[in-house]
Every structure is written in C-alpha cells, then in structure tokens.
Simulated assay, not measured.
Amino acid sequence: MARGRQRPDPDRSAVNLFVKYVLFFINFLFILVGLSLAIVGGYVLYLKEKKVRTPIDFFFDPSCLMCLAGCIAFVLAFSGCAGSLRENTILLKIYYYLVGLFLFLELALIIFVFVFYYVPDARTTLKLYPEDILKEAIVKYRDDDDMKNLIDVMQQTLYCCGLSNDDKGYLDWNLNVYFNCSSSNQSPESCAVPFSCCNIKSGDKINYLCGGGALKESDPSTQLSSRIYTQGCLKGLQSFMDGSALIIGGVCIGVLLPQALFVCLARMLKDQIMEQRSKWSRT
C-alpha cells in the first residue's frame, strides 16, 4: 500500500535557525567593527579639530572615511542583527533594501570606472572628467596632514605625480601655492614637486630634493622621468588595473558576492517569519 504524502508538522517552526543565527552573528561582528571605526575616526577628528568645507576635504581625509564607513556598517549591521534575533520583518526589510542599494551603487561605480578608462568616446559624451574635481586636493595639499599623507601614499603606490589622467600629471602641482612655478613665488619649493613623486629605485641614495625644478620642464623628458614619476594618478590607476586585472576581479567578487548572499538570506528569513505567522493565525 503506497504511503500518502506526509503532512507538514504544524508544531515545527518555519524559521530556519541556521539562517537566523548566521545573519545574527555576522551582523553582530559588523556592529563591533562599525563602532570601532566610527569611534576611532571621530576621536581623530576631534583631536585635530577638522573642519569639512568641501567634498574633497571629506573624501581625502582617512578619519572622515573611517567615520562614514563605521556609521554605515553600524546602521546596516544593527538592522540585520536585531531583525534576525527578534524576527522583526520591518528591520529585515530595511536591512536587505539598504544592502541591496549599496550593492547597486558598487556595481554602478565599477561600470563608471570601466567606462572612464576603456570607453573614451562615452567618457567624452557623458563629460566624465573627475580630474577637474580631484585637482582641488592638489591645491589643499599642505592644509591637512592626513590629506597630504593620503596623496603621498597614492603617488608612491601608483607610481604617479599629480592627479590627471595623462602623462603630464606632475604639472598639476603648479596649482599649489607652494610648488607653483612662477617668478612671484618665493617659496623654497617653487617649481618642485613633492618627494612622493620621486622615482627612487632599490639601492638608490635618498634625495629629498629630487623633484626640484621639475615644473620648469613642460614636457616629460627621459631625464625628468628618471627623477620623478610624470604620469597623473588617474593614469597610474589605469596602469595598475591593467596589470592587476585578476586581483581586482577577485576582490570585486569577494566584496559583492557576500552582500548578495546577505540580501538573499535576509529575504529568505523574512519570508519564513511571515509563513510562521500565517501558521499561527490558522490555529
């Protein structure tokens, strides 16, 4: 005699405990990380009495970025952590909508970078010229030590000088009042570029004045490029991307896939909670 279909157990919860507690513990860890970043970043801003007047002041300051990342991580993780632990569908909706929004923005940023570097015609049509905005950081290079350090690290890491998307990025330093190459500039750094632009090879003696007089040469010569990096950092970023495509692709996948998984888990848990509530309403 064939067995009939087994009826679902009305006493069995529709909520999967594995899904529930995976969301809870992962988001609890992100709450701790977010709080740590926000507290450390805020404390640094308090100590140096940072005044943010423009987007460049914000996005070129590591402590501001730490605060932003910490606050975002805390808000997202709190809604996911509390929503999963308390089985609150409203918080779970907030969580997967916000995570989905950030996932979309990250994909849009990846597409923007791809279009900027590999589709020049589209870049011209859409008038994508981020270098015009970034040059403000050159002007404010001496105004904030954190901004200065960030630019220095960028130039040394990407083997670049200035922020333009061409081979004459070093000329961007004419925009800075200390490095500007003009007869009226009495600064001892006149016509020079920062030390982070210096092309120092392994075994070379360190010469902190290697960028002296670099701005007097309007065209990058072989002699000049042996002393300093001449390409702008937007051009240097493209060179880095071309040489590290697999690494960048792996990082993007490693960042995007977990977010997509969290969205799916939160949506699944919300549906399970709704199913359990409907079972209670029928009893």
Rank of each mutant, 00 (worst) to 15 (best):
R5I: 01
D11K: 08
N16M: 05
N16C: 06
L17T: 06
K20A: 01
V22H: 03
F25M: 08
F25P: 01
I31R: 05
L35N: 00
S36K: 04
S36C: 02
V44G: 04
E49Y: 04
I56Q: 09
C64L: 10
C71K: 07
F74D: 00
V75C: 09
A77W: 06
F78S: 02
S84K: 07
Y95D: 03
L98R: 01
A108S: 09
I110P: 01
F114C: 05
V115E: 08
Y117G: 03
D121M: 04
A122R: 15
Y129H: 10
E136G: 09
V139D: 13
D143C: 04
D144F: 14
D146S: 14
V153T: 14
M154D: 12
Q155S: 13
Y159T: 14
L163Q: 15
D166P: 11
D167Q: 15
S184V: 13
P188Y: 09
V193E: 07
C198Q: 11
G203M: 09
I206Y: 15
N207R: 12
N207S: 15
G211C: 08
G212T: 04
G212Y: 06
K216D: 10
P220F: 12
T222G: 12
Q223C: 14
L224A: 10
R227P: 07
C233Y: 03
Q238N: 14
S244R: 11
S244D: 07
S244N: 12
L246E: 15
G250V: 10
V251K: 14
C252Q: 11
C252I: 12
V263A: 00
L269E: 06
D271E: 11
